[in-house]
Simulated scan of single mutants.
Amino acid sequence: MTPGPEQHNGAGGATARSRPDNQPRPGGEPLLAVKGLTIDLPGGAVQRGLVEDVTFDVHKGRAVALIGESGCGKSLTSMAILGLLPAAVGVVAGSVLFDGVDLLTCTKRQLRRIRGGPVGMVFQEPMSSLNPTMTVGDQIAEVRRLHLGERRSVALKQARELLERVGIPKAEKRLRSYPHEMSGGMQQRVMIAAAIACEPKLLIADEPTTALDVTIQAEILELLRDLRRDLDLAVLLVTHDLGVVADFCDDVVVMYAGHIAERTPVDGLFYEPKHPYSSALLSAVPQSGRARTSLTVIRGRVPSAGQFPTGCRFQPRCEHSVDSFCTRPQADTALTDDRRTRCGRVAGGDLTLKGAVRG
């Protein structure tokens, strides 16, 4: 059976498992509210709309996944939140409210206070993100020295405790290690230690388990789960791994070609997807217990910016496409209080999609 919300070990294999971290539906204002976010490459219409009209919320203590194939805009969206977009790329519309403050209107100095402080970031490639000329202890300590004004000796003591907290053995010795002296899993733990050094309210994690073996993936997810519980941490998780989503997240934002195709609680994605792209992603997951069967393939590929279809952006690859309807632009439609889709056929009741888990 394909991994579902209660059947995944978080590292690629399907096993029976409960999800005690799954929180009740939130109330009140979200900690992070992204509204109408639009990102463009300036210089001509052919380069417009890398990400368009992206809207979602992250509440305190909850984990929200941004999923989709490479090139769908997940990392651009996460980078835009903290003003980390490449110089040639810019936000042209929308707002990003964190704790009531619009990060898009903050100065560079204000953003520096937020990055590493109330908002932590775990990047996709720890070896590329860690400074090879500094010991890991000094890199973690630097976060506390910059944000909390601690002396180096005090910050290093806290760095040792953080290494212990993220499960690195012989932390006192490892403080003096350089990144290249550590395994990929340990480098990722160092990144997480630096990201939580000032006990943030929100953690943005961009593919934190990519390129790690199955055992280390499971350990990293368990670490993030413990941190959520201990710090009441909100997490925005960028990933392409549906097993990680099933095991760790409460809500899912499905992105395709710069649009949000579907927003849903995690159970809804696996039991009853509301966009053909979501259903296609689920069908492409390998089925355990079914040896020598062909994988379902989503035909074609994600279109490049400037080559998006004028109607539904998934329409050329969609097996449920009806030309007379799907070649027209599709509105982002509310189905319930916590579910939205950008498929007019599903919203209108003309199309029911198959989930990975059938009740």
Rank of each mutant, 00 (worst) to 15 (best):
P179K: 09
A194N: 02
A205W: 08
K201V: 01
G184E: 09
I192H: 06
D206M: 11
I204C: 07
L202H: 04
A205V: 13
A205Q: 11
S183M: 12
I196M: 06
A195T: 01
H180R: 14
L202A: 03
K201E: 15
Q187A: 12
Q187L: 08
A194F: 00
A197N: 02
D206E: 09
A194G: 13
H180W: 13
A193I: 03
L203Y: 09
R189T: 02
P179M: 12
P208E: 11
V190E: 03
A195N: 01
G185A: 11
P200W: 07
C198E: 03
A197C: 01
C198R: 03
M191K: 08
K201C: 01
L203H: 06
I196D: 00
A194M: 15
A193L: 00
L203T: 05
P179D: 08
G184M: 13
V190L: 05
S183E: 13
L203Q: 03
P200K: 00
G185V: 08
P179V: 09
M186W: 04
T209N: 14
A205E: 05
A197I: 04
S183V: 08
D206H: 09
C198M: 05
D206V: 14
I204E: 06
Q188M: 15
E207Q: 14
E181R: 13
P179Y: 09
I192D: 04
G184L: 13
I192A: 01
A205L: 09
I192V: 15
M186Q: 15
T209I: 15
I192S: 01
M182I: 11
E207F: 14
M182C: 06
D206G: 12
G184R: 11
I196E: 04
A197P: 00
M191D: 06
M191W: 08
I196T: 05
E207N: 12
A194C: 07
A193V: 02
L202M: 03
M191C: 15
L203K: 03
Q188L: 13
A195V: 01
D206Y: 14
E199P: 00
P208I: 11
I192N: 02
C198W: 00
R189Q: 04
E207C: 12
Q187E: 14
H180T: 11
P179C: 11
I192Y: 07
K201W: 05
T209E: 11
S183C: 10
I196C: 04
Q188G: 06
A193T: 02
A205I: 13
E199T: 09
G184H: 07
Q188W: 10
E199L: 02
